Simulated assay, not measured.
Amino acid sequence: MLCRTASDLYWASRHMERAENTARLIDVALRIAMLPERYDRGKAEAVSWRRALDALDLSDVVLEKYGRIDAETVLRHLLLATDNPASVFNCFRGAREAARAQRVAITAEMYEDLNTSWLEIRGRSWGRLQSDGVNNLLEWVKSRSASFRGVTIGTLGRGEGYQFLQLGAFIERADWAIRLLDIAGSEPHVQTGRDAEDTVDYFRWSALLQALSAFETYRRLYRSSVSAARVAELMLLEQSNPRSLLTCASTLHEVLKTLAGGETMEVVRLAGSLSAQSRYARIDDILDTGLQPWLQDAMARLSTLGDEIQRQFMVSTEVAQAQSQSQSQAK
Rank of each mutant, 00 (worst) to 15 (best):
T5R: 12
Y10R: 06
W11F: 12
R14T: 03
T22S: 12
R24M: 14
I26D: 06
D27Y: 12
V28A: 08
V28N: 05
V28Q: 07
A33Q: 07
A44D: 00
A46M: 00
V47I: 01
S48H: 01
D54S: 11
D54C: 04
L58D: 10
T73R: 05
P85R: 10
P85I: 03
A86R: 10
R93E: 05
G94E: 02
A95V: 00
R96T: 07
I106R: 03
Y111S: 02
L114D: 02
I121P: 02
G123V: 00
L138Y: 07
E139R: 15
G150L: 09
G157A: 14
A169P: 03
A177S: 14
A177E: 06
L180F: 11
V190Y: 05
R194H: 11
Q210Y: 09
A211Q: 01
S213G: 07
Y218R: 11
Y218S: 13
R220D: 15
E238A: 14
S240N: 11
R243P: 01
T247H: 15
C248F: 06
S250G: 07
L252R: 08
L252E: 07
L259I: 05
E266S: 10
V267P: 03
R269G: 08
L270R: 11
L270G: 03
A271I: 05
I286P: 03
D288T: 01
P293D: 03
Q296P: 04
L302D: 08
T304I: 05
G306Y: 15
Q310E: 15
M314L: 14
M314P: 10
S316V: 08
S324P: 13
S326N: 14
